[in-house]
């Protein structure tokens, strides 16, 4: 079964712990809505900059949210895919990563903003306590879905998958993927995912 929501986070580089100016992001996201610059039906911008270690600024969409997220003390692009009834897990996973990389590219091209995202690693969250509880069994099951996608991105035997946030079973099931060797640029990664 496919979980309720799948999220991917690419960290800001070079230093995700450094402060990020969120005010310009509000303007950028409003412009993205005007110009329909990102995939999905884009609805509105939610400003949570006042919340410490919070979701930052979120571009709310009908089937996907894009946010400059500050959770875990690390700034990054968090893309949450939702509302995909009937689609296969692997298909949604590829789609989520494709949208995330597309957004990373679009935001990265905004030179005034100065935000770049590292594409050699990412974190995946699976928001569904029923289908994907934060358990060893669910992790193994999810790993089986994630591996082909990770291989597609970074090549066979050139990535490492590890479970994160497992110390607290109340949290959503999460894992990280780290690629090694030479990492292709985001545009090439997007192409690989859609191939």
């Amino acid at each position: 079964m496919t979980p309720q929501r799948i999220a991917a986070k690419f960290l800001v580089e070079p230093d995700p712990a450094a402060a990020v100016a969120l005010e310009p992001v509000i303007g950028l996201f409003h412009r993205f809505i005007q110009e329909q610059s990102l995939p999905g039906l884009l609805l509105d911008v939610a400003d949570y900059a006042h919340v410490p270690d919070g979701p930052g600024v979120v571009l709310i969409g009908h089937d996907v949210d894009y946010g400059i997220d500050l959770s875990d003390g690390q700034a990054g692009l968090l893309v949450v895919r939702k509302r995909f009834a009937g689609q296969a897990f692997g298909e949604v996973l590829r789609d989520t990563l494709g949208r995330a990389l597309t957004a990373a590219q679009a935001i990265g091209q905004e030179s005034d903003l100065g935000l770049r995202f590292a594409s050699d690693a990412l974190t995946l969250h699976f928001f569904d306590r029923l289908v994907t509880p934060n358990s060893d069994e669910a992790f193994e099951s999810v790993r089986g879905e994630v591996e082909p996608v990770a291989e597609c991105l970074y090549g066979a035997a050139s990535y490492e998958i590890s479970r994160v946030r497992s110390e607290d079973r109340r949290k959503a099931l999460s894992l990280s993927i780290r690629g090694s060797g030479e990492i292709a640029p985001p545009s090439a990664l997007i192409e690989r995912l859609s191939a």
């Binding site: 309720q4 929501r5 939610a46 949570y48 919340v51 919070g54 979701p55 979120v58 709310i60 949210d65 959770s71 928001f127 569904d128 306590r129 109340r170 959503a172």
Partner: peptide, 15 residues
């Protein structure tokens, strides 16, 4: 509170 936290993640915007 823990259940509310789960619901915010599973159905809302984590707030």
């Amino acid at each position: 509170l823990e259940v509310l936290a789960e619901l915010a993640e599973d159905y809302s915007d984590n707030i």
